[in-house]
Nucleic acid binder design. Structure first.
Length: 683
DNA sequence: TGAACGTTGGGGGC
DNA sequence: GCCCCCAACGTTCA
C-alpha cells in the first residue's frame, strides 16, 4: 500500500485514546505520507473556563498516556503539544506543515460547537480538507436528533424510541497497529529519531508569535484564576514559548506540568496525587477489573449503588472521567460490559437503572444540549428550563451579556453558597460530599443529587446555575451537557417535576451507611461522634459533644438553616413557580420581569441585596459568624422560635400562606425540639 | 379526558 | 426488602 500525498493533521480533543477511534482510523485510511498528532494547549480553556486542579491533572495524565502510546507505535513520533489558541495556531500550522487534511472527532456540545465552527472556516480558507467523524457518543448526536424529529428527547423513553431504528451501537474498533511519521516540509524522508524530528519541527515554527509574547492576552495568565484555583501567585511558564521549554530537546512539544501552570494541588484542596489517574491505560484497566465479575454489570442498579463510599472504593465503575475525555470509548464500555454481563445467569437489571441506562442518559443530555444551544447553560433564554425565582441567578447587562464576575446577591444566599462550596453548612452529609468533591474530583451520582437538591429546590433556593458552576470547576467528569442537564433535573427545572420528593440531609446518607464513614473521613472534626449523632451532630447533647471533642458552633458549624422549615418553604415556592408556568425563553423572562411578577403574585418578599463588599464578606464566611454568635449569650429555644415567628408575620401580609426569607440565624440546636411542634401545626 | 408512568424521597407497616 | 401512602408535577397514550 503506497502512501498517498496526504499530509494529515490529526487534532486530539476529547478523544484521548488510540482504541476504537473512528476519527483516527479515518485519518489513517487516507494513507498519509505525513501524520501529525496534535494537541492545542489552549489558555482560554485553562484560565478562562472553570477548571480545577484535579481535572487539569487528569487531562495532563491522559495526554501523557496518548503521547507514550503514539511513541510506542512509532518511535519517531509523539503527541505534538503546542501552546496556544487553536483559532490562532491552526492557520499557521496548516500552512507551515503543508497540511492537506485536518481530521478530528466531532464534538457537538458546549464551547466546542463554537470553536469548531470557526475551525471549519479556517480549514476552508487554507484550502485544507476538513474531516470530522462521529465517535464520542454511542450514536451520532445529529442522527439521534433527526430521528427524534428534531425535538429534544426529554425522557429516556423518547430517546429509546429515537435510537430504536439505529440498532445496537457499533462494536468497538481496534487501535491502529502503526502510525506514519511526521515529515517536516522539504525533508527527504523521516527524521532519524524523535529528537531530530522535534528540533526540525520547532524550526518550522520560527518567528511564530507565542502566546505571552503577543502583548496583552485575552486572559490574564498570572491573575487570580476563576474559582480560586491559582495559588501562591506563581508565574505561569507554560506559555513562554509555543513548543514548551527548549533547554531540553526531549521536552519540546511536551505535555506541560501543573507547576508550569502555577498550580499546586494541595493548596487548592485537592489530594497530592490523583485518586483517579488519567489515561487510556488506566481506563482500560478499570473497565477490565469490573468485567472480571459478570454479576457487576448484570446486576448494576444505579439507585442501589451507595453514594456513601470514598472515591477510591466507588460502588460505580467510575469510568465517567475517562468517557468525558475520550480516554475510553463509550462503545468499548457498552460492549465489554454487555459481554461480561452475558455470563451471569441470574436476573439482569433492566434499562434505565442498569449500566447501559447510564450511558443512554449521557447520550440523551448530549442530544438535548445540542438541540438547545448555548442557552442550555443558563436559565435565561433556555427553552427547556422552567423559570423559578431562584436566589443568586446569573446576572445580565443591558445587552443581555452575562456579567462576570457575578454581582453579589442577597447576603443570606451568598453566605449559604459560600458555606456550601466550602463544605461548612453544618450538615455533615452535605459537607462531606462537598469536601470529597474538592479533594478527589469525584462523588457518586446520588451524592450529586443530595448536593443539588439541597442547594436548589430542597433548602437554599439558590439557582442551579451556581451549583453547575461549582461542579464545573471541581468534577473530573464535567461535561457541558450532562452537568447542566443534571442540575436542571434535580432542581425540577427540566426532565423531572416531582418537587415533593426532597432528599433528607441526614436520612438519605444514613440509608446507605449508618456509621457515617464518609463523614468521618472528610469531616475529621466529627470523627469521634457515635453513629447515633454522626449525621446530625447538632442534636447531640453537650455532654456527647464534649466527649467527641467537637463543640458544634465552635469546632464544626451549626446548621446554616432549618432543614424542615426551608423544605416546606421551597415546596411552596416550587408550587408557585409551577403555577406560573414560565420558561427561560419566555418574553417575560427575557425582559427581566418574571422574578418580580412571580414573587409579587405569590406574596414572597424580595430578598435584601447584600451590602457587604465581596472581599470583606468572603473574609467572614457564615460558619465564622456562627462561631461568633455562639460566643454571644445564647438565646433559648423558645425565644428563637418566637423570633422566627415574628419575622415571618412581619415581612409580608401573606406570610402565613407563603414563605418569607428566613432570618439568617439558624436554629442551631432546636431541630429536634421544633420538629414535633411544627409537624403538628402544619396539619 | 383520565389513567399510567416517570432511573434514584420519606415514612410507616409488614 | 417490599408495599403503600403522602401530595402532586408533566408527558404520553388509549
Amino acid at each position: 500500500m503506497a502512501p498517498s500525498s496526504a499530509r494529515v493533521l490529526y487534532w486530539f480533543r476529547t478523544d484521548l485514546r488510540l482504541h476504537d477511534s473512528p476519527a483516527l482510523l479515518k485519518a489513517l485510511e487516507l494513507k498519509p505520507a505525513a501524520f501529525f498528532p496534535l494537541w492545542c494547549w489552549d489558555p482560554s480553556y485553562i484560565y478562562g473556563h472553570r477548571v480545577g486542579v484535579n481535572r487539569l491533572r487528569f487531562l495532563l495524565e491522559s495526554l501523557a498516556c496518548v503521547s507514550a502510546s503514539i511513541t510506542a507505535l512509532n518511535a519517531r513520533s509523539q503527541l505534538l503539544v503546542v501552546r496556544g489558541n487553536p483559532a490562532e495556531l491552526l492557520p499557521e500550522l496548516l500552512r507551515r506543515w503543508q497540511i492537506t487534511h485536518l481530521v478530528f472527532e466531532k464534538d457537538d456540545n458546549g464551547y466546542a460547537r463554537t470553536r469548531d465552527a470557526a475551525v471549519r472556516e479556517i480549514a476552508k480558507d487554507a484550502g485544507v480538507e476538513l474531516v470530522d467523524v462521529d465517535g464520542h457518543q454511542l450514536y451520532p448526536v445529529s442522527e439521534v436528533l433527526k430521528r427524534a424529529g428534531g425535538k429534544a428527547p426529554m425522557t429516556m423513553q423518547s430517546l429509546q424510541k429515537a435510537i430504536a431504528p439505529l440498532g445496537e451501537p457499533a462494536r468497538p474498533l481496534d487501535a491502529p497497529g502503526a502510525l506514519p511519521d511526521a515529515i517536516v516540509p522539504g525533508a527527504k524522508g523521516a527524521a532519524k529519531d524523535r529528537k531530530a524530528l522535534l528540533t526540525a519541527l520547532r524550526d518550522t515554527l520560527d518567528g511564530m508569535p507565542h502566546y505571552s509574547a503577543k502583548g496583552p492576552p485575552d486572559v490574564d495568565l498570572n491573575g487570580p484564576k476563576q474559582g480560586g484555583q491559582r495559588v501562591k501567585g506563581e508565574k505561569v511558564t507554560v506559555y513562554d514559548s509555543l513548543v514548551g521549554p527548549d533547554e531540553d530537546v526531549e521536552n519540546l512539544f511536551g505535555v506541560p506540568t501543573l507547576e508550569s501552570m502555577g498550580m499546586d494541588p494541595e493548596a487548592s484542596g485537592a489530594t497530592k496525587t490523583a485518586v483517579v489517574p488519567g489515561g487510556e491505560k488506566a481506563a482500560l484497566k478499570r473497565l477490565a477489573f469490573r468485567c472480571k465479575d459478570p454479576a457487576y454489570f448484570a446486576t448494576f442498579s444505579k439507585p442501589k449503588s451507595s453514594p456513601a463510599l470514598d472515591t477510591s472504593e466507588a460502588s460505580t465503575a467510575l469510568l465517567s472521567p475517562y468517557l468525558k475525555f475520550g480516554a475510553i470509548s463509550c462503545r468499548r464500555v457498552w460492549w465489554d460490559a454487555h459481554d461480561a454481563a452475558r455470563k451471569y445467569k441470574g436476573k439482569h437489571t433492566p434499562i434505565p437503572e442498569n449500566f447501559k441506562g447510564q450511558q443512554l442518559f449521557n447520550l440523551m443530555y448530549s442530544v438535548v444540549e445540542s438541540a438547545t444551544g448555548d442557552a442550555y447553560q443558563h436559565v435565561r433564554g433556555n427553552e427547556i428550563s422552567r423559570y423559578m425565582d431562584w436566589y443568586l441567578p446569573t446576572a445580565y447587562d443591558k445587552d443581555g451579556q452575562v456579567i462576570l464576575p457575578r454581582p453579589r446577591g442577597d447576603e443570606v444566599s451568598e453566605e449559604r453558597y459560600e458555606a456550601f462550596v466550602q463544605g461548612r453548612t453544618g450538615f455533615p452529609w452535605i459537607d462531606a460530599l462537598s469536601r470529597q468533591l474538592r479533594s478527589t474530583g469525584w462523588i457518586h451520582h446520588l451524592g450529586r443529587h443530595s448536593l443539588a437538591c439541597f442547594l436548589t429546590r430542597g433548602q437554599c433556593w439558590i439557582s442551579w446555575e451556581r451549583g453547575a458552576e461549582f461542579f464545573e470547576e471541581l468534577l473530573l467528569d464535567w461535561d457541558p451537557s450532562a452537568n447542566a442537564g443534571n442540575w436542571m433535573w434535580l432542581s425540577c427545572s427540566a426532565f423531572f417535576h416531582q418537587y415533593m420528593r426532597v432528599y433528607g440531609l441526614a436520612t438519605f446518607g444514613q440509608k446507605y451507611d449508618k456509621t457515617g464513614a464518609l463523614i468521618r473521613q472528610y469531616c475529621p472534626e466529627l470523627a469521634k461522634f457515635d453513629d447515633k449523632y454522626i449525621y446530625s451532630p447538632h442534636l447531640a447533647p453537650m455532654e456527647a459533644q464534649k466527649k467527641a471533642g467537637c463543640i458544634i458552633g465552635q469546632d464544626y458549624p451549626a446548621p446554616i438553616l432549618d432543614e424542615k422549615e426551608e423544605k416546606s418553604n421551597c415546596i411552596a415556592r416550587c408550587k408557585a413557580a409551577f403555577t406560573a408556568k414560565l420558561h427561560g425563553a419566555d418574553k417575560e423572562v427575557l425582559a427581566g420581569k418574571a422574578e418580580a411578577r412571580l414573587r409579587k403574585a405569590h406574596g414572597i418578599p424580595d430578598p435584601k441585596p447584600s451590602t457587604a463588599p465581596k472581599s470583606a464578606a468572603s473574609k467572614v464566611p457564615a460558619w465564622a459568624k456562627a462561631k461568633a454568635e455562639k460566643e454571644e449569650p445564647a438565646s433559648t429555644k423558645k425565644e428563637e422560635e418566637e423570633h422566627l415567628h415574628e419575622a415571618a408575620g412581619g415581612e409580608s401580609a401573606t406570610a402565613d400562606k407563603q414563605p418569607a426569607r428566613p432570618k439568617r440565624k439558624a436554629p442551631a440546636a432546636s431541630a429536634s425540639g421544633s420538629k414535633g411542634k411544627r409537624a403538628k401545626s402544619e396539619k
